[in-house]
Simulated scan of single mutants.
Amino acid sequence: MKKIKTAIIGAAGYTGGELLRLLVHHTACELMYVHSNSQKGKKVTAVHPDLIGDTELEFTDEVQTEGIDAVFLGLPHGQTKGFLEKHPFPAHTVIIDLSTDFRDESHGFVYGLPEVNKTKIQGAKKIANPGCFATGIQLSLAPAIAKNWVKETAHISGITGSTGAGKALSETTHFSYRTNNMSVYKLFTHQHLKEIKQTFGQINPDFGQELLFVPYRGNFSRGIWITAYFPFEGELQEAVQAYKEFYQNAPFTWVSEADIDLKQAVNTNKCILHLKKEKGQLVIYAAIDNLLKGASGQAVQNFNLAFGLEENMGLNLKSIAF
Rank of each mutant, 00 (worst) to 15 (best):
E62F: 02
E311N: 04
C132I: 00
P215L: 13
T55G: 09
V34G: 09
T163W: 01
K194M: 05
E238A: 14
G78C: 09
G234H: 11
G223I: 04
L20R: 09
A154N: 05
H107S: 15
E115P: 09
M182G: 13
A168W: 08
P231G: 14
D61N: 14
G314Q: 08
D54E: 15
A7F: 09
K125E: 07
L22C: 07
I4A: 07
E171W: 01
N117A: 09
T173M: 09
S162L: 12
A295E: 07
G314Y: 03
I272S: 10
T55A: 03
L292C: 02
I284R: 08
K86H: 08
D50C: 03
F188V: 07
H35M: 01
G17Y: 03
R21T: 13
A124R: 06
A228L: 10
L57H: 12
L23S: 11
Q298I: 04
S140M: 02
V266H: 02
I284Q: 05
K194H: 10
T172N: 06
Q237C: 01
F133P: 08
D261C: 10
Q122I: 04
A287S: 15
T6M: 12
T45N: 09
S99C: 06
T15V: 15
V63C: 08
A146M: 07
K126W: 07
E210N: 13
A128E: 06
A28M: 10
K40Q: 15
Q79M: 11
W254Q: 13
G208E: 04
Y229A: 09
F59M: 07
V44L: 13
W254K: 15
L212V: 11
T153E: 15
Y229P: 00
P251V: 00
G131Q: 02
K5S: 12
E62T: 14
L236A: 04
V110L: 01
L22P: 14
C271T: 05
A144I: 04
A228D: 12
Q248P: 04
S170W: 01
I288A: 02
S183Q: 05
Y243T: 05
A146S: 14
W149Q: 09
F230Q: 06
N290R: 05
K147L: 01
K5F: 01
L315A: 12
Q191F: 04
A124K: 03
A134H: 06
P205D: 10
A295R: 02
A46D: 15
C29M: 07
K151D: 10
A134T: 06
K43H: 14
L84V: 02
Q64C: 05
H35Q: 10
E30P: 01
P114G: 03
G16S: 06
F133L: 13
S99P: 12
Y247L: 06
N148L: 08
S296Y: 05
K197Y: 08
F102V: 01
P114N: 10
S36H: 04
H192G: 00
P88R: 04
E171C: 00
F175T: 09
E56P: 14
G166N: 09
I196C: 07
P205Q: 09
Q79H: 11
I127Q: 05
E238P: 03
K40M: 06
